[in-house]
Design a protein around this nucleic acid. Sequence first.
DNA 1: GACCGGCCTCGAAACGATTCGAGCGTTCCC
DNA 2: GGGAACGCTCGAATCGTTTCGAGGCCGGTC
Lengths: 357, 357
Amino acid sequence: MSQGRPTLADVASAAGVSVSTASLAFSGAGPIATETRAKVHEAAQRLGYAGPNPLGRSLRSGRSGIVGVVIGDQLRRSFRDPVSVQVLDGLVSTLGPLGLGVLLIPALDPDRDPTESAELDPLLASAPMDVAVLIWGARREDATLEALQRRGVPVVIGEGPEIEGAAVVGIADQQGTADLARYLTGLGHTRIATVTLPLCHPRQTGIPTPDRLARLDWAPARHRLQGLADAGVEPTVIVEASASLVEDGRAAGHLVLDVPEPPTAVIAQSDLLAAGVLLAARELGLRVPEDVSVAGFDGLDLPWLSPDVLTTVAQPLSAKGEAIGHAVAQVLAGEVPPPVRLDVELRVGTTTGPPRT
Amino acid sequence: MSQGRPTLADVASAAGVSVSTASLAFSGAGPIATETRAKVHEAAQRLGYAGPNPLGRSLRSGRSGIVGVVIGDQLRRSFRDPVSVQVLDGLVSTLGPLGLGVLLIPALDPDRDPTESAELDPLLASAPMDVAVLIWGARREDATLEALQRRGVPVVIGEGPEIEGAAVVGIADQQGTADLARYLTGLGHTRIATVTLPLCHPRQTGIPTPDRLARLDWAPARHRLQGLADAGVEPTVIVEASASLVEDGRAAGHLVLDVPEPPTAVIAQSDLLAAGVLLAARELGLRVPEDVSVAGFDGLDLPWLSPDVLTTVAQPLSAKGEAIGHAVAQVLAGEVPPPVRLDVELRVGTTTGPPRT
DNA sequence: GACCGGCCTCGAAACGATTCGAGCGTTCCC
DNA sequence: GGGAACGCTCGAATCGTTTCGAGGCCGGTC
């Protein structure tokens, strides 16, 4: 068959061996004479055969070598956040050497009318993958998660709730936030506000209603709020940001600081939000940390804040990605990965100090 | 066969129809009675069958529905740059509705010793994909590109050289840079320096040697340098940054500005580099734009520069991603996409002004 | 000289789906 | 009333590979 690209059968017949032998020559599994292997490779070279077709291989082995990573509806929103990017980086660099590729999968739109199926079935339901990763903030009742379980795709969750049959890689964010809060109260702060990550679906910006607070089901926000409570801090005001972006932090910062009696410290649940609060403070003519202390969470490297250095709780982002990758490998090996919780570290910068008396 | 997950055959026999009919019930191609379809779906539901196995489907149809996107050795480096992210976002949102997924593929390490194959064959050589996308700065002699061509994978290139058999989506960056340069000379600047993107492999930081300048084979850097020449601007000094990051821009900025007779304007080939130059200027006590004008390229939204607004040449990032996605679709439809060149737009901000006399 | 192992190679059976042409029952038209 | 047209369903072939057990050849041993 000289039509189309050559197949293993073409190579085999060109080399004068059987298909199975040719397969062995490539896969390396099983005994094969050095000479035979050379003959096969030579024939492959001659025909321009670039190795076994992954499709055939996958079908036979039942493995695609693909790990699906679920991203938000908009890639932009997910990846504008350096946190996701660094975690993904750790993940990719762990998976790559294992021969596993990362497929980007848009999450199911939770608001979509299921009856109206304008789009052919979404990637989530039809893309090949051996394991799926929900990198960030899966919720307990999640159309995405459910669709994956229905397909029988094993799931690894980063920083999410503990869910039956899914491996979880988390961080000690509750404790880290508590440490941060104690540090601030230790400095003498009593009026502390907080800017949170999204609390629940759908995302909103502003001061959450009690109803929303009750529906709090996004793990990172929940843990970090809980950390405040652990340290005995009751925020004077809680403002929710709809995404972990500087713009949202700035808006939230105005809400928090542009009031008659502003707090003396603001704890933001992410560094980008904190950076936004910092901008807001600057715009309002407040000095940091003299008039207001600002702290974040993540431990990002933000050179453009220079000369300020943000006080923050640093989490090991790449390590989290690597831990997720490791869990993926375990799942593929048929093991059940134990839950992981990575340590975080309070890192004091120049944006926090004692309150003005 | 109740062992393992159910297959189409199981569903078919449970529904009392043939496999081919069951297939029709799912694919929707071909005539099928509504009642039959319902019967099949009901049986599928009962058995927990979540739709046709993509592996089998792919093998038969010869299509995986996967588009490989080649990223640099380190994901972090690629994605810390908002430019890549926005392009990727445009790409994903175009491809998603077409039922195509994006697989992240680490590029081949050009320095790797080919004899020593510690790693099993890289994803690039073995991952399933219908088309590959080199999103940014492919070079003419590129191990990655070559490996793809050898596999017979069609390639779409973003902002690269025109290469035989590969579709290209570019921008009018040469002209845009020329416009920017003319604007600055029009303001009266004569001593203009430039900070470039990487010029060639391997990446380096600092003032490039003539040898390096001669080997200039990275399209974006080449076009934008050429744009300066088109406008009759000969840079007083050229500094090369090894990546489009604020840190590198800052380092380059010090090299450019911390000299006895600094330029009155600096053109950086990306906004992040420009932001770094801005930081360097600030650190050196130079006022912008009074002491030095700074301009970038890309048109990113950089709220943290506030209250400054960067003068820049804006390129349509999402549109570029969409254009690439469109080209991918054309390739898959068997068409040969014509070369695309998107327009850019000079956007004057507050970081440029007339030089001090 | 016959038998027993090793080492390689081969043939055939999956893997799970799509697709094409044939077949069959019904309806409609002449 | 007979034949054609139509609508739906079915069998069988096919996609390209891996894997398993069988078998062939060779050298060594009793």
